[in-house]
Design a protein around this nucleic acid. Sequence first.
DNA 1: CTGGACGTTGACGCAAACGTAAGCTATGCC
DNA 2: GGCATAGCTTACGTTTGCGTCAACGTCCAG
Lengths: 156, 156
Amino acid sequence: MTEKLSIAQASAIAAEDFAGEGDDTSKSNMFTIGDLAREFGVTLRTLRFYEDKNLITPHRDGLNRLYTRRDRARLKLVLMGKRVGFSLSEIKDMLDLYDLRDGQVTQLKVALGKFNEQISILERQKKDIEQALTELRRTVAVVSGLLKEKEQAGAT
Amino acid sequence: MTEKLSIAQASAIAAEDFAGEGDDTSKSNMFTIGDLAREFGVTLRTLRFYEDKNLITPHRDGLNRLYTRRDRARLKLVLMGKRVGFSLSEIKDMLDLYDLRDGQVTQLKVALGKFNEQISILERQKKDIEQALTELRRTVAVVSGLLKEKEQAGAT
DNA sequence: CTGGACGTTGACGCAAACGTAAGCTATGCC
DNA sequence: GGCATAGCTTACGTTTGCGTCAACGTCCAG
């Protein structure tokens, strides 16, 4: 919510993203850090940071990181989470929960709860912004008025 | 924009707030730090912090701070600025400019510009939030769907 | 052999707005 | 005398999400 919400990449969620995937460790299903960075428009630093925060845990080829489809899916969820205003730690909680997958039902319910919470929060923020806008517009009107007075007084 | 926008205190702007005041240094027009803190619902720490940032510069009675009506008016503007999303440093810029008061016309124009900028920013944020809300609601729908499937499958 | 391209691990920096001690002073009141 | 109240200063801590060096390792084309 700081600068830009790059809606461009990291497209929408599909039901697919919530389904488990057979972890295909074959060659073409692996990505380098650069691959993912380009694909999702984030920096390498960002991906390493996410790893540091245990949001994504790629395998290694020696020192080099190797991301699977699953990692990629998680990244997608992380970015989607950010877009809708979750903090990374909140996202982590949900992902961790996701990993427990006790048949997933409980997990989905919890996630659903958080989503609804977040919806409330965003609705609140929206209202705050609307209030601020109202106030600002009123102020602009007031100041504009003053300005006209002053300019007329000056022109007199 | 972090937690609560305490709309309660620190009421709206009046044209008065943009007019210069005769700095009345008589007794009843002075406030202690506690006075202002109570009146505007901020902590002493906050007021000292603002002073540190040169937003307000109260006089002293020995060590103790003494705020004039003018200081009070500035505080009011600071809080209003915060409410509508300006950072303290932006607010400082505007206040500084205000102090130049080259007949105030230039000042008012500049402020007007900033206000309009801020309006654009807020409108943008509002749109972002609306997008996030849309995405979240869609996700909730998807997940709810999955959940129903799962539960039915489980009940079979 | 050399210069890029790509990758690695630290680790400090930053912005915003105060919170939170810690410890001292000054004044008033009973 | 003694305590409460109000105020003072200094200064480190917090939170979030990376940016930005620094200082190297590795591999490939030319």
